[in-house]
Every structure is written in C-alpha cells, then in structure tokens.
Amino acid sequence: MSEHIHLTPLHNISATDAAAWHRVVAASMARDLPGVPSPGPQQIHAELTKPTLDSHRLTWLATRTDGVAVGVAGLRLFTSPGRDHLAELELHVDPAHRRLGTGSLLLSAVVAACRAEDRRSLIVEAAADSPGEAFCEERNFRRALALDHLILHLDQLDEAAVLQAADAEHPGYRLTGWTGTVPDDLAAVFAAAKNAMNDMPVGDLDFGTVDWDADRVRAMARVIADRGDTLLTLAAVHDGGTMAGYTEILLPQGAPPRAQQYDTAVVPAHRGHGLGLWLKAAMVGRLRAEHPGVVEIETDNAEDNVHMLAVNHRLGFRSYRRTREFQLDLPAA
C-alpha cells in the first residue's frame, strides 16, 4: 500500500498543514499514550513554525491520494558544537493506517536527510511495549536509555511533608525565582549552573554536550516565550554569589492543568545538602500560589537516576508510564 502514500516536505507550514499534523498526532497519542494529554492545535502550530534553539527542523507530511494526512515526521537537526552530529526524530502514523508502509516511507526520508546533513546519530523516543518500540527494533534502532515518567497530583499532596521540605533551613543558601528570562545579574551564574546538566544520566545515547553561557540561557527563554509557553524558575544561590542549583517548570500555552518539569540540577560542589528536594518543594508551593489552575506535574527521569527518583518519590511523585530512547547509528558513507 505504500505506493499510494505521497510524502510532502513542508517548508512554509500553513494553518491547514498544522491542523492535519495535529489530527495525526492526537490520534497516535490516543492509541499509544492513553491518559497523556496531546498538544493542542495552537501548540502544534507553534512547535512547527517557531524557531528552535541551536537547531533547525525538517518536516514531512504523508497523505493518501485523497489528500488525507495519515503520517507525520519531524526531524530536529542540532547545530551547536558538541551536538552537531545529532538528530532527533518525532514520527506518528494514524493508527487506522498503520502496517501499510507509511512509517517506513517517512523513516527512509528522515535517514536520507540525516545522511545529507552528515549526522551520525538519530534518536527517537517510544512508549515502552508500544507499536513505536516494535517499529524501532524492527529497523535496527538500539535501546539506549530507559525513562520513568512520574506524576504529582497536587490535590493529593502530603502537605506537611512538602511544607517541611520547602521550609527547611539551608544555611549559606537563599532561594530566588523568576518567570521567563533570567535577570541580568544572575544570567552568568545561571549559565554556569546549567552546565551541571551535562553529567545527567543518558544511558548509551550519543547525546553530546551543551555549552551554556548567558546569551544562550536568554535565547532559550525567548524560544519558549515565542511559542506561547511560560517558564518558571527557582534557584538556590550560595552566599558566595554562585548558583548552587535550580529547577524549572514549563506551563504550556492555554493554561492546561498539567505542568511539565524541565531541568532540575544541583552543581556538583553543592550536592549532598538536600538542595534538590528544597527547590522542588518550594516550586510546588509557588505553583499552588501563582497558578492554582495547575493540578498536576509530570516529570521523567532515567531509570538509573536513583537520586532524583528518590527526591521525586519523597515529594509524592508516582510512576505512571515508561518510555525508551532509541538510537540509530548512521556510519559515514
């Protein structure tokens, strides 16, 4: 049946293209990720049309002969030093049109683009024990990282435990926070703390490294704001002026009830003082005070990241699904 599917590279994405993309993603996620909210039409449009940080995106739409979209593929090509070998794939096929060759057609186009862009590593995430996982394994992707996804229901908190963690004394440290772009006086030390994420567990992924500086943290905040999302940050600042750690929460546009945990990191020299738990507990308090419409937070951790998993479990996060990161190695031609 694959000969009846037409692939269209999308260069100037129209509202019609974005709506078709949304329908495919929503159908795919409803089948493979029940209980996980799919991005809304406006989110999809923003993701497809707004600039990304240190990367560019290629997109394809797969349609039947009658013009109905049945599959989509988005390829993010990283461009910064340390990650310019890497590409990241998102691929969805409408469940009603699977096993007919559409996914293979899309993947062939993606792999050809990776080779043209001189990429050696293609990574993709798939729900554990899902059709996406089987698709990857059948096409020589290798399992590289297992992720545990957790949910914190804010109406089921152990109030006393969270309050105790948020109010715990940490001599020599103070909390500060902001919405959106980091204040100028903290930009450099925030960038230095961001570099602590380079030692997070990534399994066997050829993920590369990211070199953060003040300009890059400002650029990241602009990218998030431009697509209509809100980024909240809390940081622990040491008396000496360095930033010891931070935690970030993303509120997707449209004020949905589920917030997404972004980075949480503690700088190596400041680990062992309970700062991660303090920061995350304080962020829960901030969310409840400033964004009462948020009722749950989703996060994910590598299954071997035992320290952060322990912190999240202490706060009341509970595992609810698993995903796996797969990597396709693309030898040089």
Rank of each mutant, 00 (worst) to 15 (best):
E248P: 05
L157F: 05
L315D: 02
D94A: 14
A265G: 06
R120A: 13
L309H: 00
A46T: 11
H153C: 06
C136D: 04
P41Y: 07
G101C: 05
P256I: 10
W21P: 01
D213Y: 09
L48G: 10
C136F: 00
F135D: 01
R98Q: 14
A166S: 06
G254D: 14
V189E: 14
I13S: 10
I123G: 05
E90A: 15
K194W: 02
D263F: 12
T209P: 00
L53A: 08
G132F: 05
F190K: 04
T209K: 13
P9Y: 02
A69Y: 02
T49H: 09
S104M: 04
H170S: 03
A18I: 10
D199W: 01
V294W: 09
L61D: 02
P183D: 12
D213L: 06
L154D: 07
A332N: 08
H56F: 15
R23A: 15
A165M: 01
R288I: 06
A187G: 08
D329L: 13
H92N: 15
R99L: 11
H45Y: 14
P331W: 05
T230Q: 13
A109I: 04
H153N: 11
L330D: 03
L147F: 04
A225F: 02
V111H: 05
T264M: 05
T8M: 07
F78P: 00
A219W: 11
V295E: 14
G241E: 08
R139M: 06
T63L: 03
S121R: 08
